[in-house]
């Protein structure tokens, strides 16, 4: 199971990094979401992977599952969720104001060649 989790985290992270480096806002948002998934699974695994163990309360059990990473992941999920929502709205706003969805606010023609910087004239 450790191998599987490690591969999942690695795949999510590399996909997230690749997408974050893209030039348009939508892939960047998706990339950041993937990165936050990766870090959530990573935090979870940092409490060590255990199966069938109770939380700290059972006195008769031989071991217990670490309850703290779950609290950390919950906080991280909420925060990442809120900021992703904010980022999507901001990306839409910048699409409306700059006239395109390029992260640098550049207008790009079909050959992906930069023509001119928009939004500087205001």
């Amino acid at each position: 199971m450790e191998w599987l989790i490690a591969i999942v985290i690695g795949t999510l992270t590399s996909a997230g990094v690749y997408l974050t480096l893209r030039a348009r806002t939508f892939p960047v948002v998706v990339g950041l979401t993937l990165l936050s998934y990766a870090v959530n699974v990573f935090l979870f695994a940092m409490g060590r992977l255990t199966i069938g163990q109770p939380g700290v309360i059972d006195a008769n059990a031989l071991g217990y599952a670490d309850p703290l990473p779950q609290a950390l992941v919950l906080t991280a999920i909420v925060i990442a969720f809120a900021i992703t929502a904010f980022l999507i709205v901001l990306a839409l706003k910048s699409r409306g104001e700059l006239g395109n969805d390029h992260v640098d606010g550049l207008t790009v023609d079909l050959d992906e060649e930069v023509i001119h910087l928009k939004g500087t004239k205001s």
């Binding site: 974050t20 806002t25 960047v28 950041l32 990165l35 936050s36 870090v39 990573f42 935090l43 991280a76 925060i79 990442a80 900021i83 904010f86 980022l87 901001l90 990306a91 706003k93 910048s94 104001e97 700059l98 992260v103 640098d104 606010g105 928009k118 939004g119 500087t120 205001s122």
Partner: peptide, 22 residues
Amino acid sequence: AQRTKASLHYVIINLIGSTLFL
């Protein structure tokens, strides 16, 4: 428009920073 563009960069880089922090 300039403010929105600069803010977009600001938000994205700080979001990456938060992920690295975690």
